[in-house]
Amino acid sequence: MTMDMMRMCTQTQTLQNVPLSIRGGHSRNILDVFHVRRQKDKVVIIMGATGTGKSKLSIDLATRFPGEVINSDKIQFYEGLDIATNKITPQEQRGVPHHMLGVLDPNVDFSADDFCDVTCRTVESILNRNRLPIIVGGSNSYIEALVDGYDKMFRSRYDFVFLWVDVSLPVLHSFVSDRVDQMVENGMVEEARAFFDPNADYTKGIRRAIGVPEFDDYFQYGPFLDEETRAGLLEQAINAVKDNTCKLACRQLEKIRRLRNKGWSLHQLDATEVFRNNGKESHEAWDRLVSGPSAMIVRQFLYNVKADVPTNLPAIRVPAAMETAALAAATY
C-alpha cells in the first residue's frame, strides 16, 4: 500500500485494529466490521451532474442531521487543482468533516475497488461516532460499484437513500459555461500550468481532470507564438473545457437515468429554478425545492416519520437533540 493510501486511511479516521491494506483485493478482516451491529445503519447518498449543487446540499444536510461528508468524485480525491476540480472550500464546508477530499498524490491511480474499501471503512468510522455518513460526488460508476458490487456487502450492511439533484441541461450548460469563465478569472490557467508536463499521461491520476489536457497545446506552443495567435489558442482551450464539462454532465445524467431504470429508487430534486434566478430568489428556490424537501426525506428515512414531502416549504431543522438521540439509538 502506498503512503498516499495510508494517509487517506488516517485522514478518514478508520477503526482501530482494522488492517489498512486496501489494495490487491478486499481484506478478509473488513468482513468482521459488517457484523458488529445487529441492524442496518443508514447512509445518505447524493448524486447529480457536475455543477448542480451536490456539495451545497451535503453541507445543508450535515448541519441539520449531525453528519460527515465522504467525497465520491474520483478527481477530487487528489491533491491540487482545487479550482479546476471545483473542490469545496474550507469556508464552504462550514466546519463539517470531509473525507477522501484532496488527499491522494496527483500521480497515483485510485480504482473503484480502492474507493469501495476506503469508503466502507470511513462509513464505519463515522457511524462509530454516532454521526450520519453522507456520500456525495459525481462519479456514478464508483457509487454503482459500491452499492451493487463489492459482493453486495454494502447493500447487505446498510440502508441508504438516494438524493438526485437535477437541473435541465440547457440551464446547466449555460451555468457551466459561466462557471468556467469564473474559474479562469480565479486562476485556473496558472493552476493547470503547474501540472503541465510535455510527456504527461493524461489517462492517469489527476491529469485526467477536465481543465488539464485541454491546455496542453497552449502550454507547449504558446511561448513560441505571437500574441494574437497565442490568445486564440487560449480561447480554444477554454472553449474545450466548457464543451468537455457539458459532455461530462450529459454522461453523468445518462448514467443516473440508467441506474434509475435499473431499479434504484432515486429522489429527484429539480433545482432548475434555482439556476434561473439570482440572489434572494435563488436562495429561496433552493430552500423550497432542494434543501427543504431533502431534509424531510432524510428525516423520514432516519426516524421513520411518515409524512408527505411538500415542495413549497422552506428548510425545516429538526431539533438537534432529537436527531442526535435518534442516531445514537439506531447505532445499536
Rank of each mutant, 00 (worst) to 15 (best):
F219H: 07
T229E: 15
V36G: 13
P66T: 10
R129Q: 09
T331W: 06
N17C: 09
V298Y: 05
R260L: 07
Y221H: 14
L169F: 12
R131H: 09
N239M: 02
V165M: 01
M3P: 05
K42Y: 04
T311M: 14
I143A: 01
V274N: 10
E190V: 03
S168P: 02
P66A: 08
P223G: 14
G102R: 03
V103S: 06
T14W: 04
D148K: 07
A329C: 10
N86C: 12
K242Y: 02
V189Y: 03
F215K: 00
S27H: 07
H283T: 11
R260F: 11
R208F: 06
G292M: 02
V44M: 11
V167I: 12
C120D: 14
V305C: 12
A209R: 00
N86K: 05
G279F: 11
P314C: 04
R94K: 13
D105K: 04
Q91D: 07
F65I: 09
T122K: 02
G48Q: 08
V43W: 00
D178K: 15
I238E: 00
P293Y: 04
M3H: 09
V212E: 00
M322S: 10
I30W: 00
E284K: 13
D82Q: 06
I126Y: 02
A307T: 13
R257S: 07
D41I: 12
V118H: 04
A328S: 11
G24M: 01
N130A: 08
V241F: 01
N304W: 12
P66K: 06
Q11K: 10
E185M: 10
F115G: 03
V33K: 02
V103F: 04
E235N: 15
Y150K: 10
C120H: 10
P90F: 08
M188T: 01
F110Q: 03
M322P: 00
I83E: 01
V180A: 11
D287R: 05
I75E: 03
A62H: 05
R193T: 05
I143H: 02
N17A: 04
I316H: 01
S168L: 14
R38H: 13
R317F: 14
D117K: 02
F160G: 01
E144D: 14
F301M: 05
D178C: 15
A200G: 15
Q39Y: 11
T50K: 14
A325W: 09
R157Y: 11
